[in-house]
Each structure stands twice: as C-alpha cells, then as structure tokens.
Amino acid sequence: MSAPIGYDLIVQQLIPGYASLARLAVALLAASPLAGRQGAAVLVAGCGTGAELVEARAQRPDWRLTAIDPSAEMLAAARQRLGAEGISWRQSSVEDLQADGCFAGALSVLVLQSLPDDGTKLAFLAALARSLEPGGQLVLVDLMAPERSALQRQVGEAWLGFQRASGLEADPEVLEPLTQGLYPIGEARLNSLVNAAGFSDPAKIFQALGYEGFLLQRTP
C-alpha cells in the first residue's frame, strides 16, 4: 500500500477510537515486565506511517525501536515523519526479519486482518512470537469478524454513520485497501491461532464496533 497524503486522518475517520490506539498500545507495553525495562528493544510490525512510533518516542524515548513494513512508500513516509534517530528501519515482513528472541515487546496494528487464514495468519503470528523474548508481550489490533446477532445490521449502519459524521470523503482507491479484501476472524479462531503460534490466551484491551485490540504474551 502506498502512503497517501492525509492517510492518518483517513484512518481516524474510518475507525472509531483510532486516535487513542497508539497511545494505549504503547502504554500497555510500557507497563509490561520486559518492555518496561530501561532501553528495552521493541518491534513495530507493519509500522505504516509511524503513528505507534511517534507515541513510543513520546512515552518511552529510551526504547530501542525497530520499525518494519513491506511497503517502501509507508516506510518512507514514516522516516520522513520521525527521522532516523533511535529507530532501526527495515523494509521486511516479520517472517523474513530473522530476529528470534530479540524484542521485549511488539506492536501490530491493522496487519493481521489483511492476511488470509490459509496458514498465512499463523505464520505471521508465529514469527512475531519467535521475535520476542519468552514472556515478551504483543499488542494486536485488527478488524474482527462480527458475532451473529440480530443487531449486527444496526452496528454496520452505525459504522457508516460514524464515517459520515467524521467527514470521510476519501478517494475509493485510498479506502479500498482499508475496507476491502480483508480476512477478519472471530475470537475463537484468534484464540486457536495465537495458542498455536506460541502465545497465551489474548486479553481484550480495546473494542470499537468491529475493531478489537488484544494483549498477548509469549509463552516460555
């Protein structure tokens, strides 16, 4: 995905609560036993335009950050925004990173949802688990599959209403990667995948309509 002008504003208009997600995700890791240490190494997997990196630098300037994204355009936008100081930039997927046990914590926001559940999601989660020290924690935020409910149609209409009220008028080419061709899963499937990948059961830390956030910990 390229990094369009105003990308961060578009995502804020699309996703309720997105503006607070980076702050919450960093605060969660900063409170963890391993990433809470001075100078901890933290991975931002799928850094996009750098929202989590901005917050990490503000809350924990002592962290040694590694930012990865397969998109050269996204990386360029994030580097322009943040500069090079204190951040190691890598155009890479987490599967190709080859950084086993290197990180005390990791952030992954709106990445898993774009991966098909044909082994690709499991490979991504397993690679994240391998990259962490035993006991290291991951904050994972994604669009989830809706539960079966008679009220689900109303929830879908509310999401569209939220977007209109937020003034969302983005080009369809910009919105498509954020809203189409996604592979959301339910919580039961997520539990199965994260356990198979080497994480403990997820603790929910955020929900806004279909978007949910979880705190996971690598098992010993």
Rank of each mutant, 00 (worst) to 15 (best):
Arg189Tyr: 10
Tyr183Val: 01
Arg218Cys: 04
Leu178Pro: 09
Ile205Lys: 02
Gln207Asn: 05
Phe214Pro: 08
Pro184Glu: 07
Leu175Asp: 03
Thr179Met: 15
Phe214His: 03
Leu178Gly: 11
Ala188Ile: 00
Leu182Tyr: 08
Phe206Ala: 12
Gly213Thr: 07
Pro184Tyr: 12
Tyr183Met: 01
Glu173Phe: 04
Gly210Lys: 11
Thr179Gly: 03
Ser200Leu: 03
Pro184Lys: 08
Glu173Pro: 00
Tyr211Gln: 07
Leu216Gln: 00
Tyr183Phe: 15
Phe199Met: 04
Gly213Pro: 04
Gly181Glu: 03
Gly213Cys: 11
Thr179Ser: 11
Phe214Lys: 00
Ala203Leu: 15
Ala188Leu: 07
Ala203Gln: 14
Arg218Val: 02
Gln180His: 14
Glu176Arg: 15
Ile185Pro: 01
Ile185Gly: 02
Glu176Phe: 06
Gly210Ile: 04
Glu212Ala: 15
Glu176Thr: 10
Leu209Gln: 06
Asp201Met: 10
Glu212Ile: 00
Leu209Arg: 05
Thr219Asp: 10
Val194His: 07
Gln207Leu: 02
Leu209Gly: 01
Ala197Gly: 07
Leu182Met: 12
Phe199Ile: 12
Glu173Ile: 07
Gly213Arg: 07
Thr219Arg: 15
Leu216Gly: 02
Ile185Val: 12
Ala197Phe: 07
Asn191Ala: 08
Leu182Val: 13
Phe214Thr: 05
Thr219Ile: 11
Tyr183Pro: 01
Ala196Gly: 01
Pro220Leu: 11
Glu187Arg: 10
Gln180Ile: 00
Pro202Val: 00
Phe199Arg: 13
Phe214Ser: 00
Tyr183Ala: 09
Ala203Arg: 14
Ala196Arg: 13
Asn195Cys: 06
Gln207Asp: 08
Ile185Phe: 08
Asn191Glu: 15
Asp201Pro: 04
Gln217Ile: 09
Arg189Met: 08
Asn191Trp: 12
Leu216Ala: 01
Glu212Gln: 15
Leu216Trp: 00
Pro202Ile: 00
Asn195Ala: 13
Thr219Met: 13
Tyr211Cys: 07
Ala208Cys: 09
Pro177Asp: 12
Ala208Ile: 02
Leu193Gln: 09
Thr219Trp: 06
Lys204Pro: 03
Gly210Trp: 14
Leu193Glu: 10
Gln207Thr: 08
Gly213Gln: 05
Glu173His: 09
Glu176Gly: 03
Leu215Val: 03
Ala188Cys: 04
Glu212Met: 11
Tyr183Asp: 05
Glu176Trp: 05
Ile205Trp: 05
Ala208Val: 01
Gly181Phe: 06
Pro202Asp: 02
Pro202Asn: 02
Phe214Gly: 00
Leu193Tyr: 14
Asp201His: 08
Gly181Thr: 02
Asp201Leu: 15
Glu187Gln: 09
Asn195Pro: 08
Arg189Phe: 09
